[in-house]
Design a binder for these strands. Sequence first.
DNA 1: TTATTTACTTGCAAATCGCAAGTGATAAGC
DNA 2: GCTTATCACTTGCGATTTGCAAGTAAATAA
Lengths: 118, 118
Amino acid sequence: MPAPAERPRRSCCPVACTLDLLGDRWTLLVVRDLFRGVDRYSAFARSPEGIATNILADRLDDLVANGIAERFVPTGQKRARYRLTDAGRELEPLLRAVADWGLKHISGTEAKLAPQPK
Amino acid sequence: MPAPAERPRRSCCPVACTLDLLGDRWTLLVVRDLFRGVDRYSAFARSPEGIATNILADRLDDLVANGIAERFVPTGQKRARYRLTDAGRELEPLLRAVADWGLKHISGTEAKLAPQPK
DNA sequence: TTATTTACTTGCAAATCGCAAGTGATAAGC
DNA sequence: GCTTATCACTTGCGATTTGCAAGTAAATAA
């Protein structure tokens, strides 16, 4: 039972609807990792924030269900990987705005966000 | 006991830290209303998403505690009002990015965000 | 002076979170 | 080829948070 998933829409406001998909403490961190090129389950789990594995599984499912990320298995391999969809990639300005605000207004924050190395 | 309040910081990532303050389903909607000039408790509660009053009280407290909004009582009046601080006003690009993404990628969303009519 | 509204608070059940501990498949080492 | 470690999850469960409904005291309106 995922958290930011298919709930009844609260209003037709684009802010409210986007928050229905991304509005929680973890989803955007997974998206941030996807932007950094993280693509394996265990790698997301190793991020410094220490997401619990059940939550990670939920969030990845949500992101896939909502068309922001996709799960795939590279040919010749067996283990799953994740990558951003086009819609997911278009979250970059949003993510950047979040990072910029944090850098400016929360002391002790450090930049590290880089565009996908590839 | 507010939700997105003074928790131990999860990491020094500006995205994570910003999410510690704004990462839930309601906080940014209250900020959106503040941008629209909504300033009274009852008016926030009347927004179409229908925030529960206990949650509204919590979120307003959080926003004030985190320096994003401030509570004030106009001279000659008795009832409280709320307004954005400078830091809060600088959330505009973030809010706009959230709205833009929703408008583009979630069907049925309608724009309405306008700069504070002042 | 009485009735409304406003700005909250309180109680409580249901949903979600976060931790710890599995589990079975895959890959690595010998 | 066999053993061991890693990976991608799932499960259980207590603690926290949510969301609904109802209540309250102060302020404003009638």
